[in-house]
Write a protein that binds this DNA or RNA. Structure first.
Lengths: 223, 223
DNA sequence: TAGTGCAGTTAATATTTGTAAATCGTGAGC
DNA sequence: GCTCACGATTTACAAATATTAACTGCACTA
């Protein structure tokens, strides 16, 4: 998203040549709404934006999504670059930039993001561990028996540990379709998972009403 | 790997402070051998190297390994940057660079590679503390149970501690839309928060009539 | 001091989520 | 084909949470 509409159009033309489709937002609020509601392969974010600035948007996006983000800025200050990267940007490109360079950075970020998805059969978070090849799950030393849907659900939650995952996202992961309004299937599986995982009364899968679920295995610890 | 041994030592000192361990190679051939035989979390690669240059090494590494690579170079030419990224580098940093910037880029690349958990996004103000990853809130030692909207509201207030936040801003943070004139939802949630947070009768959320709300956790102590 | 408008609170209503139990569907074994 | 066992889904209702409505009170002003 960028407030310079002329630049946006130039970029659209250029990227169309490389089989990439762009969607624009010219202010922060709309951009944030768009980024959260649709599923993009990558987000390009200008730092200087009306209404909400790039850092604020990035922070909000990172609460809900792991989508790759490249930040653009006219500022050349190192402090800003560091702030952007630490806030969760995957890359940072100072203006002015050539379209070829942006393309190269997009490819590098996408390659890394894709590579990450493909590898890592094992996931661990806190004292929780999961192996996608053997479909086994452990909590501490104890192995936990899960049915196949329970495992798929757990897999998705564990890979998104620490951020809220929407019902739609989970439904899509399990059934490759959006969630329908009145089905309770997901809740029931979550309920079963909670029972199987429960440790000392505290549940590590929390419901965020109206948004989705959050898996945070460390939540029992203080500080 | 870099042929400037002095620079390498400076870097070793700096990164030791951040719990990272470095292994060096000062020419291309040895660097390549090392990168392929050991399993590193990340490789930093200077472009100008004796024997084999950075691009050649990167190409070789990429045939055998998906290890994240950051390239360093004195050259500022865009052509080189693009070549590096297209050859499979994850990031590209022109010399001279500040150590902080390299650190930030390393973190960004590692985060993307999944090797590093995103930082915990904690906020604290006075004896009040909040963790956005686990959605927990403490006041002193005591943990406070908040519902999900209460938490989002608290989160926004805490991050703006010490300044007045307008109703519109809070409504936007919660619902991504402007406030409507007659809704009392926000007031009700504020009311609940006050009740849950109240300590010794004083409230740390103050209404600024006609403007918004002010969260100031220490303000109750004085006066 | 009455009037106006905003903020606070309580209660009601609506919506979302949790879970037990009933039902459905499928594959294994006979 | 039939039955059984098991897991998935749906149903039905309970519980938790969010929103709205209604009322109260306060501060400012004319």
């Amino acid at each position: 998203m960028d407030d310079d509409t002329e630049l946006c159009e130039l970029m659209a033309d250029f990227f169309a040549q490389h089989k990439m489709q762009l969607t624009f937002a010219h202010d922060g609020r709309r951009g944030l709404a768009l980024a959260l509601e649709k599923t993009f392969d990558l987000v390009i974010l200008d730092v200087m934006l009306p209404i909400l600035n790039g850092f604020q948007i990035l922070e909000q996006i990172r609460r809900r999504s792991a989508v790759p983000v490249i930040m653009l800025t006219a500022r050349i200050e190192q402090r800003d670059r560091i702030a952007g990267l630490n806030a969760g940007a995957d890359d940072y490109l100072p203006k002015p930039f050539g379209p070829d360079e942006l393309l190269a950075r997009i490819r590098a970020v996408l390659r890394r993001a894709g590579a990450m998805k493909a590898e890592s059969a094992q996931v661990s978070a806190g004292d929780f561990k999961l192996d996608a090849r053997t479909r086994q799950v452990w909590q501490g030393e104890r192995e936990i028996e899960l049915t196949s849907i329970e495992f798929d659900l757990m897999d998705h939650l564990a890979r998104s540990a620490g951020r809220v995952v929407s019902r739609d996202e989970l439904t899509a992961a399990l059934y490759q379709r959006p969630a329908t309004p009145f089905e309770r299937t997901l809740d029931v599986h979550i309920s079963h998972l909670r029972r199987k995982l429960e440790s000392e009364g505290r549940s590590c899968i929390r419901a965020i009403r109206g948004v989705g679920y959050l898996f945070s295995p460390e939540s029992g610890q203080k500080k």
